[in-house]
């Protein structure tokens, strides 16, 4: 049985805004599945439909074989959910929050302690502190503990790493990997493209539509053109010159380098480009082939 299935799910908000446009995908049991896309792509709507918080306006969806509309009570018993916004009680202490959510799900902290132990030991020193006084990273760990406390079979994490700094983000993904070994199916959404490769399979989503679903490596392998990276002393001018160059198919800034692909890709074209750039006064030109990243793929799929 598949852990999660969506079949042509549609969600329309008032004013006719189509937030989710015939989205279909499925998640296998025990899989770490990522929903990757910018704000407003429809990630949260999909999560809310799957967690039975919203009814779809079309299509069918199920979680662990239960229909999101008819069997919503069963789904609520089996899933763990961490909404995008920090959603614990800031005026309750760490321990009080945990105890409350444990009781809510008819369990105790002790019963499933082994599952959250790795995470909980990190926040245990602050267990008497009010949740509102915790740092971003700590809040996130506590929220994850609360979502896990009843040993859910499917875990929904809506943008758990948004607004969290790099260090905490890395730690968080480590925790998810460890959870996966416990057999929990995890659905996670993120606007950060660099986190895509940490998932087993991903769906790239934009404007309510799925752009691509596959393993990250396969999506990268499907990138049609050879990709090159180029840099010089003056990056912003380099970008302008590249855009005007007739042989360039695509070109965009990408951190330290600009990423480019050619209409007709051969040595001669490369040479003529570098020459023309040098005549335009670019020094210390660095040109090399580049393995595309998920972000490269996303940009290509968007255009």
């Amino acid at each position: 049985m598949l852990a999660v299935t969506l079949d042509k799910i549609i969600k329309v908000y008032d004013k006719g805004h189509l937030a989710v446009d015939e989205v279909s995908f499925s998640v296998k049991q025990g899989e770490l599945f990522g929903l990757i896309g910018p704000d407003g792509a429809g990630k949260t709507s999909i999560f809310r439909i799957l967690t039975t918080l919203l009814l779809p306006d079309g299509g069918k969806a199920s979680v662990m074989g239960f229909d999101v509309e008819d069997d919503f009570k069963k789904i609520r018993e089996t899933v763990g959910y961490m909404p995008g916004k920090f959603s614990l009680y800031p005026d309750l202490s760490v321990e009080e929050n945990l105890t409350f959510f444990a009781t809510l799900f008819n369990t105790t902290l002790a019963e499933n302690y082994d599952l959250i132990k790795d995470i909980y030991v990190q926040i245990e020193p602050f267990k008497d502190r009010r949740a509102g006084k915790l740092s971003g990273g700590m809040k996130q760990k506590l929220a994850l503990c609360c979502a896990l406390i009843h040993r859910p079979t499917v875990l929904f994490l809506d943008e758990p790493t948004t607004g969290v700094d790099t260090v905490s983000r890395k730690e968080f993904w480590e925790m998810l990997k460890r959870l996966k070994t416990q057999g929990i199916t995890i659905l996670v959404s993120t606007p950060y493209m660099d986190e895509a490769t940490l998932c087993e399979r991903i769906a790239l989503i934009q404007d309510g539509k799925i752009l691509s679903i596959d393993e990250p490596q396969n999506i990268i392998a499907q990138y049609p053109d050879p990709l090159y990276a180029i840099k010089s002393e003056r990056m912003s001018e380099l970008l302008k010159h590249l855009r005007k160059h007739p042989e360039i198919k695509s070109c965009f800034a990408f951190g330290e380098y600009h990423h480019i692909s050619f209409k007709k890709d051969d040595e001669a074209v490369h040479k003529s480009l570098l020459q023309s750039l040098e005549t335009k006064g670019h020094k210390q030109l660095d040109f090399k082939t580049m393995e595309p990243s998920i972000e490269d793929c996303f940009i290509r799929l968007m255009n």
């Binding site: 910018p38 792509a41 948004t162 606007p191």
Partner: peptide, 8 residues
Amino acid sequence: TGGVDPVT
């Protein structure tokens, strides 16, 4: 640019 798509 928090949460904005890569192209934008």
